[in-house]
Simulated assay, not measured.
Amino acid sequence: MIELLPATTHRRERWKNGGGWTREILRFPADGAWDWRISVAEVGCDGPFSPFPGCEREIVLISGQGMELHFADGEMHRLVPPHGRLRFSGERPLTALLVDGPTVDFNLMWKRDAIDAQLLHRPIVGSMLFFGEPDVTWVLYVLAGQVRTPAGVLEVGDAARIAIPPGERRVIEGGGEVLLAKLQPANPAAQG
C-alpha cells in the first residue's frame, strides 16, 4: 500500500509562542496520543524547543542558512546547509538561534518505548525497491526532484506512507533526493 500525502494536505498550525508554524505530515495513531509523528517546521525566530518527554527526535534542515541548537547542559550543535541533521532526546531543554533568517526543518519524533525509528537521506536516480517486512511503515519525503510511485507522482515537499506486506515489494522511480523514515514497533527484548 502506498498512500500519497501531498504538501497541500499537510495541516499547518501556528506555534503557541508565535515563533513559527508546523505542518503535520503524518502521525500514528491518527487520533489521540501518537507513537510517532512526522512534520515540517517553519522557524521564524530564535526560541526554545517544546519538550517531548519519553520521545526521541531527529531534525533535518530543509532550507535556510541553518540554526544553532543550544542545549541547557552546554552542548551546542549547528545545523548547516544543505541538510544538517541531529538526533536528540525530547526531554533535553534547548534553544534554537537562527544563523541568518528563517529555516524550514523536517521533524521525526517517536516514543522510544514504543517505536524503533531510522531516518535515511538518500539520492534517487532511477528505481528504488522496497521489500515488505512485518509491521514496518516507511514514510518518504521528497527533498528535491520528483518521485513516481504506483499511486501517483510526488513533487518537492510531498510525502507518502508505504506499508508492504511481507513477501511483496514495491518499486518507485525518479530523480532527486528523499528522506526515508523507517518505523516499526520497538523490540521489548532490546529495551534496557
Rank of each mutant, 00 (worst) to 15 (best):
E3H: 12
E3T: 15
L5V: 07
P6M: 07
P6Q: 10
T9H: 10
H10Q: 15
K16C: 00
E24K: 03
L26N: 02
R27F: 08
D31K: 13
W34P: 01
S39T: 00
A41E: 01
D46S: 02
G47Q: 09
G54Q: 00
C55P: 02
E58W: 12
E58M: 14
L61R: 08
S63W: 08
G64Q: 09
G66C: 09
H70T: 10
F71S: 05
F71M: 10
A72K: 11
M76Y: 04
H77A: 14
H77T: 15
V80W: 11
H83M: 04
S89E: 15
T95I: 08
T95A: 09
A96S: 11
L97T: 10
L98R: 01
P102D: 00
T103G: 05
N107A: 10
N107W: 08
M109H: 08
W110T: 09
R112C: 05
R112V: 11
D113W: 01
I115C: 09
L119V: 06
P123I: 10
P123D: 15
I124E: 02
I124Q: 04
G126H: 03
E133S: 02
V139K: 08
V142C: 05
L143A: 09
L143G: 02
G145M: 05
P150E: 02
V153P: 01
L154V: 07
E155V: 09
G157I: 02
D158N: 05
D158V: 09
G167W: 07
G167S: 01
E168C: 04
V171T: 14
G174L: 03
G175T: 15
G176W: 05
V178L: 14
L180F: 00
A181H: 01
P185G: 07
A189N: 06
